[in-house]
């Protein structure tokens, strides 16, 4: 393989990885933007999404098959379920804690994350589940660069989801309400916005996106595991910080940037794939030290 081929192959790999990161990072950044909560459970919602999608796929596969129709159907159902799960978590665990000290709410989020991951572990006995699909391995071949159709469809659907979200945030009433609440919650309440409902909606959308990403990851990697949410939660947070936490565009950009950085990072001499995670956490720490506002974030007054 020539170095140009390697470049294009890693570009493709990075884009796929990056679109997963971006989808998960969006949920992080939306929740953080609106109630300043670092939702540790977000990575676990992604994991739950993969498992719920797996469950639905095995239910509908007799009817719709294990190809794109079945996958699409189970992905939509999984998005709805995970969205509702996110709303439930917000209602039960986070809403009573919003006025509590920051340490308490962080520990609450951590506890929710543990409940989800250990709950799934108890249900699956900690085993890997094979995410069976019959999508085949055909793809586009350009010289030595090979991209499967599955990869292309996944990237395109991630892009479609993000575009929809982008229009929703910028063009609808509820999107406007979300942006307003992120700026000043009390003023919104005075203006007659149903703040609680908009916060619940934010959780719904953010969680649904994580659920979609989970199903897509199941399709892409072919196996799912109760611990798969942990590392991607960390990575998605890194992506959200790279882009500037609280910024929707930042999360998309940060996700893609992190995916590409990782893909190309494994090509640097001495940075093999076993050091990939160290590489991205290193980026996170350097970024937080030198530019905590990220690429697109606004400088904000520190609130403890």
């Amino acid at each position: 393989m020539s170095s140009l081929d390697i470049f294009f192959q890693q570009l493709a790999n990075g884009l796929i990885l990056g679109s997963f990161y971006a989808l998960v990072a969006l949920g992080y950044t939306m929740v953080y933007g609106i109630i300043k909560l670092l939702n540790f459970a977000h990575g676990d919602l992604y994991m739950c999404g993969a498992f719920v999608g797996f469950l639905f796929l095995s239910l509908v596969s007799g009817l719709l098959g294990e190809s794109w129709t079945g996958i699409l159907c189970s992905m939509v159902l999984s998005m709805l379920t995970i969205g509702l799960l996110g709303v439930l978590i917000q209602r039960v665990a986070y809403r009573p804690m919003l006025s509590a000290p920051r340490l308490s709410i962080l520990i609450t989020a951590l506890a929710v994350s543990m409940v989800l991951s250990n709950g799934v572990m108890a249900l699956t006995d900690g085993d890997y589940e094979a995410f069976n699909t019959d999508l085949g391995f055909e793809g586009l071949e350009m010289g030595n660069v090979f991209i499967t159709y599955t990869q292309i469809v996944l990237v395109v659907s991630a892009a479609l989801l993000m575009l929809t979200l982008f229009f929703f945030i910028n063009r609808t009433m509820y999107g406007k309400a979300m942006r307003a609440i992120a700026i000043d919650q009390d003023a919104c309440r005075l203006m007659g916005i149903n703040v609680n409902r908009v916060i619940a909606l934010t959780f719904f959308i953010g969680s649904a996106l994580a659920g979609a990403a989970g199903v897509m990851a199941g399709v892409y990697y072919g196996s799912i595991h109760f611990f798969m949410g942990f590392v991607i939660g960390l990575k998605a947070f890194t992506a959200a910080v790279i882009g500037g936490i609280g910024s929707i565009r930042g999360a998309m950009l940060g996700g893609l940037a992190l995916g590409l950085l990782e893909a190309f990072g494994t090509q640097i001499p001495f940075v093999g794939s076993e050091w990939k995670d160290v590489f991205s956490f290193g980026i996170l720490i350097l970024l937080l030290v030198f530019k905590p506002t990220g690429l697109l974030g606004k400088t904000e007054i520190e609130r403890m």
Partner: peptide, 15 residues
């Protein structure tokens, strides 16, 4: 901020 610290320590633990 305190919540950034939490996630950075998580990252360091993994490193």
């Amino acid at each position: 901020r305190s919540d950034y610290l939490a996630i950075v320590t998580l990252g360091f633990g993994e490193i």
